[in-house]
Write a protein that binds this DNA or RNA. Structure first.
Length: 544
RNA sequence: UGGGAUGUAGUGUAAUGGUAACACUGCAGAUUCUGGUUCUGCCUUUAGGGGUUCGAGUCCCUUCAUCCCAGCCA
């Protein structure tokens, strides 16, 4: 995109987050564009904190933003800036503007400014202060800086065009008074520059060539072009707009995300159901899957809503390649292999990842009493069911073929244990005679099993566009977005997993140890995504 | 009713004025020691109407639809 505009091919971009919230997947799109363009054309990308509103901004956010960008795999090198680095320069430029009669101090109240601005269809009127003498402007502006005037009493405005059809050009505010302490400049300033003034000039100072931003800034481009053409600014970056990322079943507005956190609907910014980068990370998403997703979505100027399915496809595709396969039983029922020696234990070999032989193998213990998934047995099998039922033979993954001979129930009819026999010839999961066994179940040896907590995460919202039909996105919350299984049974090797590991619990989905709560003493696994499940789909169809 | 943008399968994104395509979803089937993976096939597209042209998704006119803008937020 327009890289040929730069003579030596050196393009310079910037990612300019406002540190007033955590980065989410929508920002990931911007990051991929800003850093990606620079990478692609052999340029560089600056990280610049757009910190011009001390009331909303916080060091906590600054730190998290840097962590998240690095996690995604991007590096701004030494090019780390803050809009607040330019406060002195910005101030000098403003003073010059006043001297040239191009800016004035306005004493209209905020309400009055609004009235004078006119409406979308009617032009505005000029402020009575618009022609205040330059000397007076200079004096007042100096006093503003010295803290001699209360917040809201005065504002510095550019003298542009009150009749402009573009409201952003009707004498935009350049500086406002705020007696707020800034995370970086402390109490040095009590006047702070506005976005339309700060952003373009910061871009110019840094030698940015391509300033990418979202569509809503399109209307600000004339203001951007004005600010970068102020006398003394010798570099003219150009602004390009692209559409924001929207994803079905998600909300991506800072306000709504903040509300989810504050109202404790989720556990925090890094709750695995949040679309924040820290949330997705804790959920078990790899940075590669997120970047792949963003690349597949593409860049355009049409407002669009991407199907959540595409995101899930991207994680699954990536995790399928890299996740270590393990076995865990979430809803255990006991299986007793009646012809297997009481005290015998065999350590069977299992592939860590069939998609990647280099991942090696590990050993899992097999014994007479096992757990399998409750839904892997049916007393009265439905049509097409090829798992365990009385008389049927199935394979225990990596182990043996077993045939169900009977079950034992309690007084209420609950299945207590399933009795089976095994075929010693089928060790490793196959036989010489090549007979077909359709069903394969995962399992865990009862005496070797470890107890673990498993957190089953699902979409936070039930509908594609939360709030659109109901009027309130909170009405569309999925009550089952988190289902906790306090005591799942897992194979022993699960004890050796760590935060950041990508796992697949065979036939159950992709999981990762929780970065906050997981420990050897109390293993906790978060479900990143389910496996595709054509069987339950088929069942549902048969029900209808 | 001011200004700025945008309309291509269900979704997202491509197509020097020259056969409308790719991915996801959905559906059907094959393979499989995960009902996963993999593979095969199918469904469905240029907002409407005019015009220019041998030929239009692309150029022109027009209509319609959608989004953004009236912070001393970014």
């Amino acid at each position: 995109m327009a890289a040929n505009r730069v003579p030596n091919g050196q393009i310079v971009t910037r990612f300019p987050p406002e540190p007033n919230g955590y980065l989410h997947i929508g920002h990931a799109k911007a990051i991929c564009i800003d850093f990606g363009m620079a990478e692609k054309y052999g340029g560089r990308c600056h990280l610049r904190m757009d910190d011009t509103n001390p009331e909303k901004e916080d060091q906590e956010y600054i730190d998290s933003i840097k962590t998240d960008i690095r996690w995604l795999g991007f590096d701004w090198g030494d090019y780390e800036y803050h809009a607040s680095d330019y406060y002195d320069q910005l101030h000098a430029i403003a003073v010059n503007l006043i001297k040239q009669g191009m800016a004035y101090v306005d004493s209209l109240s905020a309400e009055q400014v609004r009235e004078y601005r006119g409406t979308l269809t009617e032009p505005g009127r000029e402020s009575p202060d618009r022609n205040r003498p330059i000397e007076e402007n200079l004096k007042l502006f100096a006093e503003m800086r010295q803290g001699k005037h209360p917040e809201g009493s005065l504002v510095l405005r550019a003298k542009l065009d009150m009749a402009s059809p573009n409201i952003n050009m009707r004498d935009p505010a350049l500086y406002r008074i705020k007696f707020a302490s800034h995370p970086r400049t402390g109490d040095k300033w009590c006047i702070y520059p506005m976005y339309d003034f700060t952003h373009p000039i910061s871009d110019a100072i840094e030698g940015i060539t391509h300033s990418f931003c979202t569509l809503e800034f399109e209307d600000h481009r004339p203001a951007y072009d004005w600010a970068t053409s102020i006398d003394g600014i010798d570099h003219a970056p150009r602004q390009y707009e692209f559409a924001r990322l929207n994803i079905t079943h998600f909300v991506l507005s800072k306000r709504k995300l903040l509300n989810l956190v504050k109202s404790k609907i989720v556990g925090g910014w890094d709750d695995p159901r949040m679309p924040t980068l820290c949330g997705l990370r804790r959920r078990g998403y790899s940075p590669e899957s997120i970047k792949d997703f963003v690349n597949r979505v593409g860049v355009a100027k049409v407002e669009s809503i991407v199907d959540y399915n595409l995101l899930e496809f991207c994680v699954r595709e990536d995790l399928n390649k890299r996740a270590t396969r393990m076995m865990a039983v979430l809803d255990p029922v006991k299986v007793v292999i009646t012809n297997y020696p009481e005290d015998q234990v065999e350590w069977l070999l299992a592939d860590n990842n069939p998609e990647n032989p280099a991942a090696g193998q590990r050993k899992i213990p097999f014994s007479r009493e096992l757990y399998i998934e409750r839904e892997d047995f049916m007393e009265v099998p439905v049509k097409g069911y090829h798992r365990l039922y009385i008389g049927n033979e199935v394979r225990l993954k990596h182990a043996y073929y077993i045939t169900c001979t009977g079950i034992e129930k309690d007084a209420d009819g609950n299945i207590l244990e399933i009795r089976c026999t095994y075929d010693p010839e089928s060790k490793g999961g196959m036989t010489e005679d090549g007979r077909k066994v359709k069903g394969t179940s995962h399992w865990v040896s009862a005496r070797h099993a470890i107890d673990c907590e498993v957190r089953l995460y699902d979409k936070l919202f039930l509908v594609e566009n939360p709030g659109v039909a109901t009027g309130n996105y909170l009405d569309d919350l999925n009550p089952e977005s988190l289902v906790v299984i306090p005591e799942a049974k897992g194979e022993p090797a699960l004890l050796d997993t760590h935060s950041g590991d990508y796992l697949q619990f065979i036939r159950n989905g992709y999981f990762t140890p929780d970065s906050k709560d997981h420990s050897k003493k109390h293993p906790v696994f978060n479900r990143t995504a389910t496996l595709k499940d054509s069987w339950s789909k088929k069942l549902q169809k048969n029900d209808r």
